[in-house]
Design a binder for these strands. Structure first.
Length: 387
RNA sequence: GGGUAGGUUGAGCAGGUGGUGAGCUCAGCUGACUGUAAAUCAGCCGUCUUCGACUGUAGAGGUUCGAUUCCUCUCCUGCCCA
């Protein structure tokens, strides 16, 4: 272990087994992260549409950036020359870089994978590149985030044949060891990724294999894809109990809807990231307690209310739904910023509420109420609740 | 007043010189989005009983087996001339 990440369990799960949720504190080079929490995704060294101050105001304590994208543009060496990722993007709180493994899946038209690594074509210009565990780590060290992630091979769990899941999982294990061996920086943590798809035996084996290695944190990968909530829950219920005595932070990669977050926290996960709240916001939908609103809908054009009564965010403090509806229709850039601020504030405030319940030791009791808050019914029901 | 070019589903168009015009782009309506090739994508967008059917090419007549197309008149619009 690098020692660059220390996870402190503030409130362990209750002995009665009513929940595996826990409150914790993750100490990183650039600061402390209260968990459970959510990391907004800033792929290109920016959370789309936001100023770093917006993120601070929304309550983000750590954000994610992407190795693949920053390697291609502007280049990790350039970022290193300019003083590293924090300085480059003027963000002085913790950052985690994803390894680029996810692009193995999402850009699968453009690449070829083998046991040594992945050869891919740039989505910008078609030029050829190659990632290996060693090169991914080298790039991440150059970027200089607080946390690097081992290079892995995720697969869409529900639609992948078992033998292919097995192959990707075993490859991920070998790459995990190579990522660890390649990692040099002592001021940067390194997290490992558990795979195994939806197969109980593969999940179990992957959890054991990755947990046995000296990573600073344990990522749960290959979920938040095409699986059902029940399948995801089943996978978590295999992974987390196996980590019962483990003192490391648990990070479920890619999860972002409030209800999904709540369920995963309940099953023992500490950390999340997702593009969902930001992307959904840019596409015109905002999250409110118990529902969601599509601001492009005709019915908001005359609605003088804020998105959410009592919300502290940049949008709700000063602007009406009608104004947001106008901005989206007009294609005005402020729409994206305001809606993104709202959804990230909503998500992060929701996680703060979950933490408060955990610290007050009222968490499992408050689950129904928190679920009601997180639920996102269809718009008609939402309208009733927020009217 | 004369000449000329036109009139297509909210707008702008495509097409159609006798036998299939419901096609495109906007606009509009709705939905999706989960380790970001996403300010993107998908559906709907004349009417209906919507896996289909019907109607629809400014209006009224005429020719024709059959007219959006050819003929006559009328209305409207742009431009030119007076």
């Amino acid at each position: 272990m690098s020692g660059a990440a220390r996870f402190e369990v503030l409130v362990p799960p209750p002995a009665d087994g009513s929940t595996l949720a826990r409150a914790g504190r993750l100490h990183l080079a650039h600061g402390v992260v209260e968990t459970p929490t959510f990391m907004p995704v800033g792929t290109n060294a920016t959370v789309k549409a936001l100023h770093p101050d917006d993120l601070v105001e929304a309550g983000a304590e750590i954000i994610l950036a992407n190795t693949y994208h920053l390697y291609l543009r502007p280049g990790h060496e350039r970022i290193a020359r300019l003083g590293g990722l924090h300085r480059f993007m003027s963000w002085d709180r913790p950052i985690l870089t994803d390894s680029g493994g996810f692009q193995v899946v999402s850009l699968d038209d453009l690449n070829a994978i083998d046991d040594d690594g992945v050869t891919f074509r740039s989505h910008h210009d078609g030029s050829r590149h190659r990632f290996t565990p060693e090169s991914s780590i080298a790039i991440q060290e150059a970027l200089g985030a607080d946390v690097a992630v081992a290079f892995d091979q995720p697969v869409p769990p529900a639609s992948t044949r078992l033998e292919d899941v097995a192959q990707a999982t075993e490859r991920t294990h070998r790459w995990a060891e190579r990522s660890l061996a390649a990692h040099r920086r002592t001021d940067q943590a390194l997290f490992g990724v558990i795979q195994g798809g939806l197969d109980p035996e593969l999940r179990r084996a992957s959890t054991a294999a990755i947990a046995a290695l000296p990573f600073d944190g344990l990522n749960i990968g290959g979920l938040a894809g095409d699986e059902t909530p029940a399948e995801r829950a089943a996978a978590l219920d295999i992974v987390v109990p196996l980590l019962a005595g483990d003192t490391r932070v648990r990070y479920l990669m890619g999860l972002g809807s409030p209800l999904d977050l709540l369920d995963a926290v309940h099953r023992g996960v500490d950390l999340f990231d997702s593009v969902l709240p930001a992307r959904v916001a840019r596409n015109g939908q905002v999250w409110v307690p118990g529902g969601r609103l599509n601001l492009r809908n005709e019915r908001f054009r005359d609605d003088p209310a804020p998105i959410q009564d009592g919300c502290r965010c940049l949008a709700c403090r000063r602007f009406s739904r009608a104004y947001l509806a106008h901005l989206f229709r007009a294609g005005e850039l402020l729409a994206y910023r305001l809606a993104t601020c709202h959804n990230l504030t909503f998500t992060l405030d929701f996680m703060a509420e979950v933490r408060a319940a955990l610290r007050a030791r009222t968490f499992p009791q408050r689950l129904p109420e928190l679920r009601a808050l997180a639920r996102q019914q269809r718009r008609d029901e939402a309208a009733v609740q927020t009217a």
